[in-house]
Design a protein around this nucleic acid. Structure first.
Length: 222
DNA sequence: AGCCAGGCTACCG
DNA sequence: CGGTAGCATGGC
């Protein structure tokens, strides 16, 4: 068992199943890996992945709630929306001018898929979708084996010297994927581990890696 | 009051 | 290529 897997095990033992991705009207689904269940929920994950860029998820929930309240929480309804109305609805998540454009750009791409599964390369060509958002969509929307790295992940990994300060997104992503693949041979279990690991890192980091000095109070031992 | 949040693009050297 | 300003609201 390598240090990455050790970290995962300790986090899971501490916090348990996180049940990401949360879906509107259902919330988290701990120990239930049947999500997303349909195309609407897949799209909701994509939407949430864009809205949550550099923002807390509670703000994203407000935006999604706003959309739901005006009956616009679906691909076609958002596509048909007046852009200013869309901006008003997603205002709580911040960067609403950019994000409104990103969402509309993504919808064009999403419809061109015609129900198909996007590749990572295709997603990265869409304006507003960088590596983390692409992996978020793939991991939680399409159940693909693409680990999602975020600022917290880098912070925690740096704390434990699993990577150095100048590690790039891909360095961390493939370190995690390679490390977990060594220990977990079953693909379904591996997928759920990717999904839970990222969520667990966020849960742990909100407590111990949000304000400086990062890692104060962190009880994990590798 | 100031810092941080489940980042990305554009533009710089 | 790496580094950074700008984007914006909300919570603590």
């Amino acid at each position: 068992m390598n240090n990455i897997h050790k970290l995962y095990k300790q986090l899971y033992k501490t916090y348990g199943s996180q049940g990401w991705w949360p879906i509107m009207g259902y919330g988290y689904h701990k120990n239930d890996y049947s999500f997303p269940r349909d195309k609407n929920e897949i799209f909701e994950v994509c939407l949430g992945s864009i809205l949550t860029q550099n923002t807390t998820f509670t703000s994203v929930v407000k935006s999604l709630q706003n959309l739901q309240n005006i009956g616009c929480l679906s691909v076609d309804t958002i596509e048909a929306m007046n852009e200013d109305k869309l901006k008003r609805a997603i205002k709580p998540s911040g960067y609403f001018n950019q994000k409104a454009r990103y969402i509309l750009e993504f919808i064009k791409f999403y419809k061109s898929l015609d129900g198909g599964i996007p590749t990572r390369e295709e997603l990265l060509e869409v304006k507003g979708i960088g590596e983390e958002t692409a992996d978020s969509i793939l991991l939680y929307g399409y159940n693909r084996l693409e680990f999602k790295v975020d600022a917290y992940t880098k912070r925690v990994f740096t704390h434990f010297a699993l990577v150095d300060e100048k590690a790039k997104y891909s360095d961390i992503k493939y370190l995690v994927q390679d490390s977990l693949k060594e220990c977990i041979k079953d693909e379904t279990e591996l997928l759920h581990t990717y999904q839970e690991f990222h969520a667990l890192i966020v849960e742990h980091s909100k407590r111990y890696y949000s304000k400086k000095p990062y890692g104060r109070g962190c009880f994990i031992k590798l």
